[in-house]
Design a protein around this nucleic acid. Structure first.
Lengths: 338, 338
DNA sequence: TACCTGTGCTAAATCGATTTTTCAAATTAG
DNA sequence: CTAATTTGAAAAATCGATTTAGCACAGGTA
């Protein structure tokens, strides 16, 4: 009824525990165990359904075979897709994943990292939020394997992988401009994040490239920590005070969803009254009539690449990494709104 | 630079490791350690920042202090809310959570449970899917603490907690009928799940209670494993062949979302052309104009109750459980669609 | 014959905690 | 004043694996 231990298997096979361990860990040849004996051990282990005791292995080897995934919000759709791929990929490589969300709370971010440290995760996958910089730097200093996703800190020397934000926005802008639209608004949050700045740069550059004047009043910076209602009102004011706008580009899906609500309130028709484009897809954008055009993040690619980078670090045999920064292209998805 | 061990702390405090262990685990009094010595140990442990090695503790005590949460889909919104509450509650009690999703794959469900077994989780929180019955029964047979959520198997004797499906549907139906609507359709999937049957029972009973004839042709059973497009078409056929319908009740949010798409395609206006009601809320329902009325699940309550039930089982001091089945009331949320 | 070498496996140390056992010194009892 | 008990803490066993060191035996060598 109780759990089968290595010792039990050894007894069943009539050998020493160490011999069983060698064979099961593929070190039989190296340890000069006869094929005959090895085969017998394998057989016994197989049909007895022996599974090594994880904790014991971890204690002895010092490896927990667990990765920590830290995201901003566990209920976000970005996380959902990310988690699925990462879990699958990790499992393929014999790793488990524990998830944690900072829930937009910088302080909690630090706590979480420390908590995961206690749990002894072997490596970290993090979508960094402002305020986590110090904690992440600490991990790197301790030579813990870390890969950042979706964003990064220029000062921290650890690999990261994210969408090419600049190029993504350009794709969208080119489409809008190609349709003859020129009065295009850009809505962003005021947090200082690399990816947001890149998106803004994409917007500005696209306009300049097409000799369209960049008007400051067409760029709206919403405050991040703000009541939902306040943001809605500010957005509505913005649209009402710029009635000549052809199109609006939301730099995150969170903003896009707010936008949809305002647009519905104002009774505007997409795309006739206002073309709408959003960075980062969301379930709602597929369904919400007439369908919101978006720049889709290559989430699966990001996840796979991130795991690869992490595994590379985890493998102590590897030398230092060559490429530290990886940018994957986004994909423009045309729906009815633009 | 290396991790501090109990031994190190013992050396620092000038006592034996066992003594440190006793004090740190609050067994100092019981083991007759002098207060003076205990205080010194506490101090040393404190300022040296000692943290016990999880794996070592787990190995020795046989407790992993980890719970397994198995859901159908990790990207679903039900999971998202559930996970957040469960993680918070578990943490409060010194437990971690590992998540797994079956992704609507019965076979994977079994694998997962076995995988979690290997990982030595102390208890299971499961939203059971058809096909997992045998595996769950096994867990129960092995006296592993298990709590089911959202659904249950009548044959398995383990606690479960879910929304009162019957009552939830009744609430919605009463609202529709109160508005004078009588030709109400009910859309469900054909999987044999307790909660689905209860919802259907709620629909039928509500009609009967108001002396409204129950027409079989107003009940649509969609096949679960089906191409999205096929389901959409079938749903559209259903609506077109019953043009006299006043209202439609979707028994799951998955179906409701399909419904929205069809309704948009057919150009129907909610609620004038067709009143729409859905069981189980979803982000989209809040935003999608004119807002979809729903029966909201008490997810937080479910999560908290489930954890409580699990903790009760985990506590070996407790006798057998009294109440095995807990039903929490749902909440009718009125929006524009009904 | 004595000495080395290689083979094939076992014994024992180890990881870092918890828990049981043991034990010297102090106290109490008879 | 010796024996029994209590006190306070150290020593050792244990959890279940991995890994290093070691041992017995066979065959080859000088």
């Amino acid at each position: 009824m109780k759990r089968l231990t290595l010792k039990d298997v050894a007894k069943l096979a009539g050998v020493a525990p160490s011999t069983v361990s060698f064979v099961l860990n593929g070190k039989g040849k190296q340890m000069r165990i006869r094929d005959e004996v090895a085969a017998r051990i394998m057989q016994v282990a197989e049909k007895s359904g022996y599974e090594p005791h994880r904790m014991a292995v971890n204690l002895r080897t010092g490896q927990s075979k667990t990765l920590g995934l830290i995201v901003e919000s566990i209920s976000g759709s970005f996380f959902a897709s990310l988690a699925k791929t990462i879990e699958t990929e990790a499992e393929r490589r014999g790793y488990n994943v524990v998830y944690c969300s900072t829930e937009n709370n910088a302080q909690k971010g630090g706590e979480l990292i420390r908590m995961l440290g206690r749990q002894m995760v072997d490596g970290y996958l993090i979508t960094p939020a402002p305020g986590m910089e110090k904690e992440i730097q600490q991990l790197v200093n301790q030579h813990k394997p870390v890969v950042l996703m979706d964003s990064y800190f220029p000062t921290i020397k650890t690999p990261y992988v994210l969408i090419n934000n600049f190029d993504g926005v350009q794709q969208g802008m080119k489409h809008l401009i190609g349709r003859g639209l020129t009065k295009i608004a850009f809505v962003m949050v005021d947090v200082k994040l690399i990816q947001i700045e890149e998106r803004l740069r994409g917007y500005v550059t696209a306009l300049k490239d097409h000799k369209i004047p960049v008007k400051k009043k067409y760029i709206l910076q919403l405050q991040y920590h703000r009541q939902r209602e306040d943001s809605l009102r500010e957005l509505q004011d913005f649209l009402e005070s710029n009635p000549e706008l052809d199109a609006i580009f939301f730099s995150t899906n969170y903003l896009g969803i707010l936008g949809l609500e305002v647009i519905a309130r104002m009774g505007l028709k997409m795309p006739e009254d206002l073309a709408v484009l959003c960075f980062d897809d969301h379930d709602i954008f597929r369904l919400y009539p007439p369908g919101i055009s978006v720049i889709e993040q290559p989430i699966e690619g990001i996840a796979k690449t991130a795991i690869d980078l992490l595994m590379y670090q985890l493998d102590k045999n590897n030398g230092p990494m060559k490429k530290q920064a990886i940018e994957l292209p986004g994909k423009f998805i045309l729906r009815g709104s633009a």
